[in-house]
């Protein structure tokens, strides 16, 4: 008997022939929130800041300046970016070299950059979390995790009011990375774009 059949046989024998169906899951917890958008965005900002990451609100037309200022403030000279990062985000860079991850940068090239600039797929207000799914402007996981500094651009409409709202919005078939706060030497900075 294969290990697979043996394990499944044991499971069935342990559960017995007369199984009671499990009771339904009571989902009485907060799934959606009726809070005004402005409060949700404000809560996200507060929680990101509480977690120790720098966070700024910018208008869509100020984004390029804000990106350049954030990098300049940390003395970042070389960044890696996902190949499909919007050109406009990097339009104001002065004295910062941006390497597109296309073809994929190797480990040595990644080790030589000071930071990475990405977007995100969703953000969660009550936990101050940004979630990346490898989609537009987010890049592959190694690019994001290897960098010593991460500047993440969050559009206000990507911020969800609860964890269940984010889970419903995310596609689990894509590779998901949930990042909450800076970790050790790894810096995190968040720009919230009010569209």
């Amino acid at each position: 008997m294969s290990a697979r059949d043996e394990v499944l046989r044991r499971v069935r024998s342990a559960l017995g022939d007369e199984r009671k169906p499990p009771p339904p899951v009571p989902r009485g917890y907060a799934r959606r929130s009726a809070e005004p958008r402005a409060d949700v965005v404000a809560l996200f900002t507060e929680r990101v800041a509480e977690g120790g990451a720098a966070v700024r609100h910018v208008g869509a037309d100020e984004l390029a300046t804000a990106v350049a200022a954030a990098l300049w403030g940390r003395e970042v000279k070389r960044i890696a970016v996902p190949a499909d990062v919007p050109y406009g985000w990097l339009a104001e860079l002065d004295g910062v070299r941006a390497l597109a991850d296309s073809p994929p940068l190797d480990a040595a090239a990644l080790a030589a950059v000071d930071g990475v600039v990405t977007g995100c797929a969703a953000a969660i207000a009550p936990t101050g979390t940004v979630v990346l799914d490898g989609g537009r402007a987010q890049g592959r996981r190694a690019l994001v995790l290897a960098a010593a500094r991460h500047l993440c651009v969050v559009h206000a409409d990507q911020i969800t009011a609860t964890v269940p709202e984010a889970v419903a919005r995310l596609d689990p078939v894509r590779p998901l990375t949930w990042i909450t706060g800076p970790r050790g030497a790894r810096g995190l900075e968040v720009l919230v774009v009010e569209d």
Binding site: Y29, T127, G128, R141, V163, P164, T177, W178, T180, R183
Partner: peptide, 30 residues
């Protein structure tokens, strides 16, 4: 959506753990 609220608070006392990775099979190029 339930377990990712229960586990972090019970594991470290925080609202969310520093990093959560969800991986489904092989993703080309990632």
């Amino acid at each position: 959506e339930v377990l990712l609220q229960l586990l972090p608070r019970s594991l470290t006392g925080e609202r969310m753990t520093a990093l959560v990775t969800c991986l489904t099979g092989v993703v080309p190029g990632d």
